[in-house]
């Protein structure tokens, strides 16, 4: 564990806490894409299948449970909690996210490190996470203006994988044989998809107004 990895995990944790804070306290999910949240729930469900079979550390297991619990509870809130569900703009959140799932599954069946059930699903979760933010970014463009909490959520979510890239660079130079092209390319694509958002986020941040 290096500082970049820890910073990445803390940034990721902060992103889910910001979103849970927004939904739980102000009982609103305005501007949040349910489809992105559903994709993330699938990402964690397929990535952490080994949570009970391979123990890495208490920290690792704890964080997996946090990400699983938060992503599924956010989906539950947005789908079934009547006060929160009312603030979900279903008309705008129309990105065909199921069209992302199948290509990622096919790609995982074609390109993976090992052809085992767990490894293919784990690889699938990497590809899916890389594109999971798309419904949210499309919703953001449609709703134009978003509240600060949602902007902070997207910023932190985009930043965490960027910190992971620094972690991979660090590990590449400090650990022999640490080469994982699939993880690296998926992580790079994922971070690059946020480039446009980061650009506007910093512009507004400098301007001191909300994200438009």
């Amino acid at each position: 564990m290096n500082i970049f990895r820890l910073a990445g995990d803390m940034t990721h944790l902060a992103s889910v806490l910001v979103l849970l804070l927004k939904i739980h306290t102000i009982k609103s999910c305005a501007g949040v894409s349910l489809r992105t949240q559903e994709l993330y729930a699938i990402v964690f469900a397929t990535r952490y299948l080994d949570i009970f079979t391979s123990f890495v550390s208490v920290y690792n297991t704890f964080m997996k449970l946090v990400f699983l619990g938060s992503s599924f509870s956010i989906v539950w809130y947005m789908r079934y909690h009547k006060a929160v569900h009312r603030t979900y703009d279903r008309e705008q959140d129309t990105f065909r996210h199921w069209f992302l799932v199948l290509p990622c599954l096919v790609l995982a069946l074609l390109i993976h490190e090992k052809f085992t059930f767990l490894e293919v699903l784990w690889t699938f979760s990497l590809y899916l996470e890389a594109v999971a933010i798309l419904p949210q970014l499309v919703l953001l463009q449609r709703t134009r203006n978003i509240d600060n909490l949602t902007g902070q959520y997207i910023f932190l979510l985009g930043g965490y994988r960027g910190l992971y890239i620094l972690n991979w660079i660090y590990r590449y130079f400090t650990e022999p044989h640490f080469v994982h092209w699939i993880t690296w390319i998926a992580g790079l694509v994922q971070t690059l998809l946020y480039a446009d958002f980061f650009y506007y986020y910093f512009l507004r941040f400098i301007g001191g107004r909300g994200v438009e």
Binding site: D9, S54, S57, N60, Y164, E175, H177, F178, H180, T183
Partner: peptide, 10 residues
């Protein structure tokens, strides 16, 4: 090598 086997990242 075995390091790559254990998925030690999230």
């Amino acid at each position: 090598d075995d390091a790559s086997d254990t998925k030690d990242e999230l």
